[in-house]
Design a protein around this nucleic acid. Sequence first.
DNA 1: CGACACATGTCACAACATGACACTTTAAGC
DNA 2: GCTTAAAGTGTCATGTTGTGACATGTGTCG
Lengths: 216, 216
Amino acid sequence: MCGMTAEAAIGRRERKKQATRESLIEAAFGLFTDKGFEATTVEEIADAVDVSSRTFFRYFASKEDVVLTFQEEQQVMFLELFRARPAEEPVVTALKRAAIEVARACEEGVAGFDSQRFTCLQQLMETSPAVMASSLQHQQQKQQLVAEAVAERMGVDPATDLRPHVVSAFANCGIRVASDCWQQGRLNGFGTFSEAIEQAFSLLEEGVNYPAAVTR
Amino acid sequence: MCGMTAEAAIGRRERKKQATRESLIEAAFGLFTDKGFEATTVEEIADAVDVSSRTFFRYFASKEDVVLTFQEEQQVMFLELFRARPAEEPVVTALKRAAIEVARACEEGVAGFDSQRFTCLQQLMETSPAVMASSLQHQQQKQQLVAEAVAERMGVDPATDLRPHVVSAFANCGIRVASDCWQQGRLNGFGTFSEAIEQAFSLLEEGVNYPAAVTR
DNA sequence: CGACACATGTCACAACATGACACTTTAAGC
DNA sequence: GCTTAAAGTGTCATGTTGTGACATGTGTCG
């Protein structure tokens, strides 16, 4: 540990790769913010970083893929936090706490979590159907991992028990709904994203099978 | 009502349009089933019906759009059935019953609901990410309508209350999870799609905030 | 230094999607 | 019935996404 950072430990080639990758993301987010998602072409992004379009597709499978980078990081963090929750906590409560922590990180912009990009991603999803679609799909795909973690915590077999899948799907939904409603300025009074998440998951904790006449 | 069907009441032009549209769907599903979604080109579909590719895009906004036709119908039926549920039923219960009815219709192939196409759609979603993505997006989009119906039933304002949105999102999830797990042959013993739906929604009715040790 | 692996550029190409314009069929008015 | 407007379709051109093949440089390691 002679003061070498992890960055310096790896070779120049790897460093360059990371650099162009990061540059591409940076350029992409910039252009998307300025001109919108569909209006900016892959060629423009590549040109901005001075690489060929072909190279862009060696880093990202599609134009959508660039913006999902961020979501991927969120997902990883979420899963880690969830696994770290104390075992005594009921499942949904643990999921809620984990989700809130991620939301906070996004808001405050902790360690690599750029809050500006977070906002940008939210807006892109609203304005661009393509981004929305791939975001949903990505989340859906990652949901499988959450289901496994949930099953482990519950001590049941995810291959035969429906419950962990249902729970993880609902967690997904909670986050999505909170995000949507927060974006649209719903939630009378509540401002932050994490508060929206809190609210959505609390409903799930309490149960949602409301009778026809709702008074509370 | 001199024996004229609704079909004959409209003009020849409209009839032809419906015919080509239906033919396109038919041809598309056939080719998708045979060769898979990505492997069949729009041109092939168009050729099969003897129209130009350009015409295809006058009927459907995209290749994905063809397969979503069916999902759209399901959605419409679901909303109708939900609205028709007795007011005394708790919300989630009503959603469950409606979902089960739709599932039954798909299985049995009632009135325009071809059970073969239903199966095909399910498989396409599993095998083709593009289909999955657009399906998710379509469902997400239609969820707004369900939220409004839920809000109406609950007697609350969807613009300021988070609950109807959460509930409709969860309903969506329930259907999705049931579909996925049913496809993958999970659900020890339970065979039909409607039974899977039943199971998923029942969990939601009962509440899902399970403690760490699950015994039941 | 020299051999090798890897990243990138260039070229070619297929498929999706859309705009513009011309042509035919259908519907509607007199 | 004839005319005229509207709607559907075909053809052509074009832009963008995404991928395969091959050549060329640049980094890595012995």
